[in-house]
Nucleic acid binder design. Structure first.
Lengths: 116, 116
DNA sequence: CGCATACATTGATGATTATCAATGTTGGGG
DNA sequence: CCCCAACATTGATAATCATCAATGTATGCG
């Protein structure tokens, strides 16, 4: 597994789409599908939701294993997928790992649908 | 497989979200994940793209098996998934089956991300 | 140093899923 | 009525994925 930024950091594809987009190439489709794959699981959607709903804007793993009826390793696995998709950001402080939404990532993902 | 409308027809959940959405329930998450599951495949993204790009607004299966390097049964299978997700509409005229984007479906799906 | 806590990684297993070959179905033409 | 064309469905298979138990790693505390 390469730690590649599936969702482009700042070089937004969004603003420069060649207007008359003919269709979707095989490679682009593969990249875009990776983001939707990350969203294609109920538990991952709930993880995103919980992180987003948190007042502090970030949550540690221990806050996430409770609401979801899942073991800690499974939650870590889902979080990793969301990070690799560019949707979540991980920051380790002390013993805890804090996860937060990548700013604009959800909006950018919504934009992917418009540029199909 | 039940022929259920995953993407709600008109009774939009969107307009009535209780403002301070606490988190995402297990059942809601499951429903929303179904739509993203349909988008989580490169070939299905390309199918949507081709249908969208077509000037007439609709495409028959024979127009879709070429660009994608897939057999006809596989394409039919993917199209069925997209229809069941509420993203595509199927209309049979004569021997041909025409697929078109469900109006507003992509925008509504984008809205799902905002209401996480 | 030694131990406990918080989290990640590994390995294994059962469940989905994507794909194809073969077959079924329906509609139009001769 | 028979055949062909367009598409759908079925059944089988290989690959992917979600989950858990067990283990590894690093950090803070005494």
């Amino acid at each position: 597994m390469s730690a590649l930024p599936v969702l482009e950091p700042a070089t937004d594809e969004t603003c420069c789409a060649p207007a008359g987009t003919p269709a979707l190439g095989a490679e682009e489709a593969k990249q875009k599908a990776l983001v939707f794959k990350a969203l294609a699981d109920p538990n991952r959607l709930r993880l995103l939701s919980i992180v987003k709903a948190d007042a502090s804007g970030e949550s540690c793993v221990c806050d996430l294993t409770g609401p979801l009826d899942l073991g800690q390793p499974t939650v870590s696995h889902h979080l990793k997928i969301l990070v690799e998709a560019g949707l979540l950001h991980r920051e380790k402080r002390g013993t805890w790992a804090y996860y937060s939404l990548v700013p604009g990532a959800l909006e950018q993902t919504a934009g992917l649908l418009a540029t199909l």
